[in-house]
């Protein structure tokens, strides 16, 4: 079971790299926000899987709950920012 969990974690990390490509090339800031949000959700799963690999899930699960609770504050806050400040990019020359 441990090799399987190890493989699952590696697969999640590779997925994370794929999502990160979108954050690199994302034309707008909001695309980046979206992909970072997905990376955050993947981190919850990764921490739970790491807890199973260490076979001390009772210790790791608190971190995962903390993430699950706090993951969406950043998204909410950024959304509020864009509702006040209705321009997407400060200038046209935003490069990545």
């Amino acid at each position: 079971m441990i090799p399987f969990l190890y493989g699952a974690g590696l697969f999640l990390l590779i997925n994370m790299v794929l999502v990160f490509i979108r954050a690199v090339q994302g034309p707008t800031v909001i695309d980046r926000l979206l992909s970072i949000n997905v990376i955050g959700t993947k981190c919850i799963n990764l921490i739970v899987i790491a807890g199973l690999i260490f076979s001390r899930l009772d210790m790791f699960v608190d971190i995962a709950i903390g993430y699950g609770l706090l993951n969406y504050i950043a998204a909410v806050c950024t959304a509020k920012f864009y509702q006040h400040n209705k321009t997407l990019s400060p200038d046209s020359g935003a490069s990545s």
Partner: peptide, 9 residues
């Protein structure tokens, strides 16, 4: 929230 931000931006 993200969709709302995008549509208002």
């Amino acid at each position: 929230a993200i969709m709302d931000a995008a549509s208002s931006a």
